[in-house]
């Protein structure tokens, strides 16, 4: 193992790790927004809302994220969508993870006992009041962990944006391999950064989870 080489180039990996963090956070925010909207729509009694939400989920969970990303970045210009690699990366990853997050959020909402809805309705509360004041506060506590799992999958999966030349961790590893011929060191270095990001993020999720737990 070439320690001297690692000591020399790790700052470039740190910079690239920051790009991975940025693209992941933006994609997670997009995913949460889409996931939340789709979850509420898919639980609506109105088929005009339900149907598109369900299709979105099965479409994006049923095809590879890589193909979705290529379709957006390489296929997009053909239909007039021109995106920078970073933008395409955020949108591609975010729209994909949104479908998974939708299922996590939906699962948490469904897991709230039916008796809670009944108790709320019996008091004369409107459907949206039952949802916002009774169901969602309870579901929120149950969705933190599954959403954390989705988000961590996204952080690791963000490596695919290297294929559309976003200069993040995986791309950087590849680039330095071609100039140093040291794939072992480069991939170890990239892994250390991924592990660091994921570990910090996991602690964040645990902290939030404890924060929202019922007393």
């Amino acid at each position: 193992m070439d320690i001297e080489l690692i000591g020399r180039i790790w700052p470039f990996f740190a910079e690239a790790a920051w790009v991975t963090v940025k693209i992941s956070i933006l994609a997670i925010m997009l995913g949460l927004t889409l996931g939340f909207t789709a979850a509420l729509a898919s639980l609506s009694r109105n088929p005009v809302l339900r149907w598109p939400a369900r299709s979105y989920v099965s479409l994006f969970r049923g095809t590879p994220a890589l193909i979705q990303l290529f379709l957006l970045y390489f296929g997009g210009p053909q239909i007039g969508i021109h995106l920078e690699p970073f933008e395409a990366g955020v949108i591609g990853l975010g729209v994909n993870i949104g479908a998974y997050m939708c299922e996590s959020i939906r699962g948490a909402i469904i897991s709230v006992e039916k008796g809670q809805t009944e108790a709320g309705s019996c008091l004369g509360l409107a459907h949206h009041q039952v949802m916002s004041r009774i169901i969602l506060p309870q579901a929120a506590r149950m969705m933190v962990r599954p959403l954390g799992v989705n988000a961590i999958a996204l952080i690791k999966g963000s490596a695919i944006v290297s294929t559309i030349s976003v200069v993040e961790l995986s791309y950087t590893a590849h680039r330095y391999i071609s100039s140093t011929y040291k794939p072992f060191e480069m991939f170890i270095l990239a892994s250390v950064f991924y592990l660091a990001i994921v570990t910090i993020f996991s602690y964040g999720v645990k902290w939030v989870d404890r924060g929202v737990a019922l007393e």
Binding site: E118, C122, L123, G124, A126, P137, R141
Partner: peptide, 24 residues
Amino acid sequence: RERHLNQLRQNIGMVFQHFNLFPH
């Protein structure tokens, strides 16, 4: 119908076997 039911239910209290209190 939803408005009608909400109005109606405000005047009818219900208590369940399993309480169904709001735990939060």
